[in-house]
Design a protein around this nucleic acid. Structure first.
Lengths: 339, 339
DNA sequence: TTTAGCACTCTTAATAAAAGAGTGCTAAGC
DNA sequence: GCTTAGCACTCTTTTATTAAGAGTGCTAAA
């Protein structure tokens, strides 16, 4: 049974009202505050229907209704209108971003994260560009002093990653060059996540007599490959605590300990990678138990058509979806343009 | 009026008991649990004295006593014994640290921070090595491709800092070298915090025709000079929430928002720099309002006699001082040896 | 089909009473 | 003169009771 126009109106109004006030919405309130053109009794009947259909629920008998997750889902899919940002808002966002002046990736990401959380008033999550999605272009090793050097890794998407390493004593510049040249020959053009451990082992065999320097160079490669390169930046972790659903200390602790575990956050965001435009996960739609009282709005950003990172906003299930979606979308577009 | 032996015993017992249970300590409990050799009535009298002298206080009439900040201070200064770590414990700590394998500074610092918080069960703060405390040794600029290069800054303490920069188009390698050589000549041997803005302006004048590349190089220098180079690493931010004094949501929020502001944390730790061995700040001894319900145990670490960073543990005023001091001391020593 | 009216339900806030822990003081003991 | 036992008193915490408020669901009328 599809929702008739009146039910849609009421569901819409309940969501809107509840998002603003965080309290169950009663029929009288609705009749008073929204000019729906029918009485509270009618609304009561419709609400009872909506509850039976699973779009609304009652915290307890004789309280108002709040949207169920199904209700929010319907709202997000069919009822809400994502506003285009006004010019004015765009200017404000750009001011918060100030990306033009940024050079270093880390700085950009941190700024995006901060901006997202401050404008939405929820917690933001940003995954820095993932090298694994790019292809190997070139590696160099630059000696600094007798003992140390810098390994530089360049990808086809134009990212540069570098790392200070210890150089083995007995290696002269020529030998160093040989090693580096060999590595470049073997690796050039490979997607970074194609550089498997078995390939690395093979290379190690070939170069066993230069093994030391190789080990160091490998460290950088492995780091690029490893999960913890997928660094996550959080912004406004305390923002979400202002929401009334988190006035309970136990809930706060559970959520904060989630924030401390990068790997969990990655898994939370990862499903969003490679997916469509903007992705909304409501409550239990999140696989992660710790986030099932929350909703997550994510979008990915790209370089040269390849998705290389994700930004997102985490708030309570009772979230300002339309507003957040508009903002997340905008930020992702800005990042696309930037890289 | 100095404390007699019995008062010391009682104060010691009150601190110990309260640190363990987080509840006011009554005279009867004390008489029962500690074999002090005198009755609860005697203890009551002594406690009343201690209260009048300011070492103990009552949350309300007819409750047990808890140590005042003065009481904790007396305990830290005169009563507690900082245990030497047993060999067993040292092995355990070293396992948690695993510093031997670390190369990158950031990794080391992060590991120290994690280890500190996990072993103490409080929140840890670690300031990464501060370049400003070192002297300028050498700067290099290494081109990567047509548009970009890496600036490398080397200090006399052996730290290397690098940054990817945009190279201006029209600069050929010779010119680049000239600029770099000139900068090195002017800056070599200066302490990094002596490289003031006025000196930089002067250099800019001298090199105004190569201004673009200079700007970029300066960015790195300025970054080394700027506050935000003093990066702070936090560990176990949620650990402190397990303490019963933080079962109040408002308090949690206040403390967490402190954790989000690096500059505040810096100011909290900064007084510890350059100071003696281990530094204990109890409650209101912290200048920062947000931390006045907490105690802070800090120690600095050095390279070549110069203090370049600080580690610390932040817990409730009701803290396991002896244990924490021993651990912080040990970690600082480990860092000293490492660098 | 919609709406007004009203009894009923459940939560939250406010109030009262009881239980528990610990003190402070007094007087007796060593 | 210091120490200890005893007991009344105080203050918090817990539990119970009541009252107020909001909102529903049902019935009957429009």
């Amino acid at each position: 049974m599809p929702l008739n126009e009146r039910k849609k109106q009421i569901l819409y109004a309940v969501v809107k009202e509840h998002v603003n006030n965080a309290e169950p919405v009663g029929s009288r309130t609705l009749a008073r505050r929204y000019n729906l053109g029918f009485s509270s009794a009618t609304i009561r009947n419709e609400m009872a229907d909506l509850e039976e259909m699973g779009y609304l629920k009652q915290p307890h008998t004789s309280a108002g209704r709040i949207p169920s997750e199904k209700g929010y889902r319907y709202y997000v899919d069919f009822l809400m209108e994502v506003p285009a940002l006004t010019e004015e808002e765009e200017i404000r966002l750009n001011k918060a971003l100030k990306l033009e002046k940024m050079r270093e990736i880390e700085q950009i990401i941190q700024n995006v994260s901060k901006g997202l959380s401050e404008i939405t008033n929820y917690t933001s999550l940003v995954i820095a560009p993932q090298l694994t999605k790019s292809a190997f272009k070139e590696m160099r090793i630059i000696p600094i002093d007798e003992q140390r050097g810098i390994v530089v890794l360049i990808t086809d998407t134009g990212f540069i990653k570098n790392k200070i390493i210890n150089l083995p004593r007995m290696l002269n510049p020529q030998e160093l060059n040989q090693v580096v040249n060999y590595l470049n020959k073997r690796l050039r053009g490979l997607a970074i996540d194609q550089v498997t451990n078995s390939l690395l082992r093979e290379l190690k065999r070939d170069l066993f007599h230069r093994i030391e320097i190789l080990e160091q160079a490998f460290l950088l490669l492995e780091e690029s490959l490893s999960e913890d390169d997928n660094r996550i930046f959080l912004g406004g972790t305390t923002k979400i605590l202002n929401q009334p659903e988190f006035k309970n200390v136990e809930k706060i602790k559970r959520l904060l300990s989630l924030f401390e575990q990068d790997s969990l956050l990655m898994s939370l965001l990862s499903s969003a990678l490679e997916k469509k435009d903007v992705w909304v996960k409501i409550g239990k739609e999140n696989k992660l138990k710790e986030a099932q009282e929350c909703s997550l709005v994510t979008a990915s950003y790209k370089v040269g058509g390849k998705t290389i990172g994700t930004i997102g906003v985490l708030g309570p299930t009772r979230m300002q979806y339309a507003k957040v979606i508009a903002i997340v979308k905008y930020f992702a577009e800005q990042l696309n343009q930037l890289f």
